[in-house]
């Protein structure tokens, strides 16, 4: 099996749309590439869009899961680089949700030549509080309890985690095809991803950012506050911060109409 075929299967890579510019959309912790489906109608006519699932999420090949590799965000950054190498992508715009923003930044620092710009949706370089100088929003005990919550919910779901039924109003073929894996991540992989996401501190790499970057932050997000967005903007060179008047951490799902034009504008700058 060639490297290309192997990675396409391993990371469930999908390529849609057409255009000279390539957008690589990277899902955050919790779900999978389906998170992007609300944005795709607005992007696919102008851009070539590459979607993928990190190993351990969505419809990736779970047999390739390596707990050690995916215990830090570098392992996920390697997934990004593998996908780029497999598809021979260059000059791409990386769009990451939440933790994927940092994963993309790590990948771009490692192989800057592949990337042209970064778009970060609700990013945070560190979810932990280090008072007084930095408030990521959460204490260690909160995050330990989160891991516990993931466990209890897995037990709770296990009895009926057979394919999740779609709402009748969602008729797109893409959705029907891929929906059964949505959020039904393998528990070991999900907990490892949670630990890598929420216990890490990547504030120090922000200074190494060199690409033009757009941060889209909600003005009311329980996970990544406006202050975190401002902190990132101050640390990173060539960084633009847009505060979107919205509630929640999943702007690309809840407010695709507000953020898609911003994203398109920034990509075409």
């Amino acid at each position: 099996m060639s490297f290309k075929t192997e990675i396409i299967e391993r990371n469930n890579v999908q390529v849609i749309g057409s255009g000279s510019k390539v957008l690589l959309l990277a899902h955050g912790f919790g779900c999978d590439q389906n998170m992007w489906r609300f944005m795709i109608p607005q992007l696919s006519s102008d851009f070539k869009i590459v979607l993928f699932d990190y190993v351990g999420s969505g419809k990736s090949d779970v047999s390739q899961y390596d707990k050690k590799r995916y215990s830090t965000l570098d392992g996920y950054a390697q997934d990004v680089l593998d996908v780029c190498q497999a598809l021979e992508l260059k000059e791409l715009v990386f769009v990451g949700h939440s933790v994927s923003s940092i994963i993309g930044l790590l990948a771009s620092i490692q192989k800057p030549i592949i990337f042209s710009k970064l778009v970060m949706i609700c990013p945070s370089p560190c979810f932990l509080n280090f008072p007084p100088e930095y408030l990521g929003g959460f204490d260690k005990e909160d995050l330990e309890e989160l891991l516990n919550l993931m466990d209890t919910n897995y037990i709770g779901w296990a009895s009926y985690l057979a394919p999740l039924v779609m709402g009748t109003e969602n008729s797109e073929s893409l959705v029907t095809e891929l929906s059964d894996s949505f959020c039904s991540t393998d528990p070991v992989a999900a907990k490892t991803f949670a630990r890598a996401t929420f216990f890490s501190d990547y504030r120090h790499i922000l200074k190494e950012a060199s690409l033009p970057t757009l941060i889209l932050q909600s003005n009311d997000d329980a996970l990544a506050s406006v202050a975190v967005g401002e902190f990132m903007k101050n640390e990173m060179a060539h960084c633009e911060l847009e505060i979107v008047k919205a509630k929640g951490h999943c702007l690309h799902m809840t407010h695709p109409d507000s953020i898609a034009p911003e994203l398109i504008r920034f990509v075409n700058l």
Binding site: G28, F29, G30, C31, N34, M35, R37, F38, S98, G137, F138, D139, D142, L143, E145, L146, N148, L149, M150, T152, N153, G156, W157, Y160, L164, V165, M166, G167, E169, N170, V175, S179, F182, C183, F198, D221, A222, L223, G248, H249, C250, M253, T254
Partner: peptide, 29 residues
């Protein structure tokens, strides 16, 4: 909700709701 449940809400529950329009048996605090 308490803080861990807020994260769980934002990472799982809301995306599930947006995607499937429903979710069931989620344990939170």
């Amino acid at each position: 909700f308490n803080r861990p449940s807020k994260i769980f809400c934002e990472s799982y529950l809301m995306p599930l709701l947006m995607h499937n329009k429903k979710c069931e048996e989620i344990q939170l605090s």
